[in-house]
Design a protein around this nucleic acid. Sequence first.
RNA 1: GCACCGUUAGCUCAACUGGAUAGAGCGUUGGUCUACGGAACCAAAGGCUAGGGAUUCGAAUUCCUUACGGUGCACCA
Length: 558
Amino acid sequence: MDYKKYIAQKIKVEGVSEDEVYSSIALPPNPEMGDYALPCFKFAKVLRKSPAIIAQSLAAEYPADDVIEKAEAVNGYVNFTINKLALARETIDEALSQGEKYGSSDIGGGRTVCIDYSSVNIAKPFHIGHLSTTAIGSALYKIFNFLGFKAVGINHLGDYGTQFGKLICAYKHWGNRDEVEKGGIHAINDLYVRFNSEATEEMEHEAREYFRLIESGDKEANELFDWFKELTLKYVKGIYQKLNVQFDSYAGERFYTDKMQPVIDELREKGLLKESEGAQIVDLEPYGMPPCLILRSDGASLYATRDLAAAIYRKKTYDFYKCLYVVAYQQNLHFKQVFKVLEIMGREWAKDLVHVAYGMVSLEDGAMSTRKGKVVWLEDVINRCVEKAYGIISEKNPELENKQDVAQKVGIGAVIFGALYNNKIKDIVFSYDKVLSFEGETSVYVQYTCARANSVISKGGVPASYAVGELLPQEAEVVKAIAAFPQAVQDAAEKYEPSIVARYAVDLAQKFNKFYFDCKILTAEGDKKNFRLALTSAALTALRNALTLLGIGVPEQM
RNA sequence: GCACCGUUAGCUCAACUGGAUAGAGCGUUGGUCUACGGAACCAAAGGCUAGGGAUUCGAAUUCCUUACGGUGCACCA
C-alpha cells in the first residue's frame, strides 16, 4: 500500500495541492522518530505561520486510525508512525501468498520493451568488458517482465565489417579446420590477433576483397563466415546459460543489410541527406552535434546507418513502448545522433529510445587490450569464483550434497553481482581480489542469509496461521524492508538501474541477520514462534525474488 | 580546443531526487562461540561531501566557476 498517498489524502493545507504534499513526504533519519515525515517549511510562506506551528496543527488535526497510528510534530516536521501490526500482517500475508510473484505487478500492462544488450562480436571471446552490458541488460529484461511488460531481448550481433574479411584472410593463410574445430573461438581470435600484428600490405588488400566477397554472396567466403558465426554462437550460448541470460532475437548488424536502402531513400526524399567531403551526412549542427555519417565516400554504409534501420525495424516489428540500448557510455554521442536523426525524420517514437549507458571496465594496470594479451576472459573469472566457492563449501560444509551445483550458484552469482551492485555509470577497475571476496556486501552474503532462513524454516515449517503481537524494533525493520520490495523493483525499472535491487537485497539481508541474531525463532515463546517463522519465510521470499531478478541462483543450503 | 560524465571515510561505494545527526562494506582496533548455520552479529576510530562562489527556511543533491580524472568529437563498430 502507498502510505505516502494515504497520508497526503488526509492532509489539507490551504493553497497546497495533494500532489505537492505527496511529493514532499520524506523518510525520517531514524526509525524511532517515525516512518514518514512531512517537512512543513515550504508551507510557511503560503500560510504565513512558522513551520513549527503548522506542523503542530497538522499533527493535531491528523485523524489517526489503524493504518497511521500516530502523528506528532517535531521541529517543523510532522512525523507519522504507521501501525506496524497491520503492516506486518499485510506484508507477510502478501509475501507468503504471492510467493515467487511477490513484488511483481501489472503496471506494464503488456506493453513491449525491447532491450538491446550483450551484443557480442563474431569471433571475439567474452571478456570482462562484456559483462556489464550482459548482466545489466539481463536484469532489466527480468525486471520488466516481472512488472507486467513484455520484454524482448535482442542480441545485436557484431557480424558486419571488414574485420571479417581479415579473419577469413588470416584463416586462409595460417589456419586449418582441425585447429579451429578444436580451439573454438579462441583459435579464431588468435588468427585475428595475428592478422593485426603480422599482415602485409598485400594481405590487407586481400582482406578487403574477402569482405567484398561475403557481401556479394560468394559461396566459400560465406561458408567460412557462417562457420565462424556458428562457433561463436555455440560458445556464447554456453556462457549465457551459465549466467542465466536469455534472448528472443539474434538479429545482428548483417540482418539489416537489405533494410538500409529504404532509410537512405527516405532521408534523401526528406532533404536531410547532404554531401560533405564526399560522404553523405545528416547535418546536426542546429542541434549542437557533429554530423551523422550515413554513407562513406565509397558508398558503403556505416554503424549509424544500420542502427537507424534497426530502430525502424524494431518499431515496426515489436511496436515497442520503449527500446533500450544497454551500451557503454563511449557511445553517448552516437546514440544522441541516431535518436536525433530519427526525430527529424518525423518518427515521433524517437523519444522512446533510451541509451542505458554504463561505465567502462579497466584493469589495475590500465585499459584492456586484446592485442597485447592484456585481457581477462570471463570464463576464467567464472572458473576461479566457482573453484573458490567449492573450496569454501568443502571446508565448511563437507557433507553437503550437490556441492558442485551450489558452488556454481555461489561463484557465478558473485560474478554477476559484482557487475550489478554499483551505479551502472561508474567505471569499474576489475580485480580478482574484489570478485573473489565473499564477505560483506556481496551476493554470497545474501545467499548465505537465504540458506540460514531456509534452514530455520525446514526445521520449524511455515505456520498455517500466526498472531501478530507487539513488535520488537528488529522485527519491525524486517517487516518494513520486506514491504519495500515492490517499490524497489519499480524504481529499478524506472531508472534502468538494477543496482537498486541488488542494494535492496543486501539491505534486507542485513536487517534479517540482525533480527536472526537478536531474536530466537524456533525456541520463541507462545505466539512469537509462529510469527517469526512467518516473518522469516516472507523475508526469504523477498530475498529469493530479488536475487532471481538479477539472474543469481539461490541454493537451499550452502 | 569543444561537449558529455565522474570526484563523498584509508579503499570500494550508498544516500528514497532539496529535508532533521551524510550511511554501508572492506581494512584497522576491541568484543559476541551452551549456535535456529561464525560466509554471521555488536562496538570504536575514521568526513569542511575536491576547492571557491550563488540560489533558500534548508544543498552531497540545483546553478556558475576552478582543479583533477574519464569518454567522445568524419568516413571503424
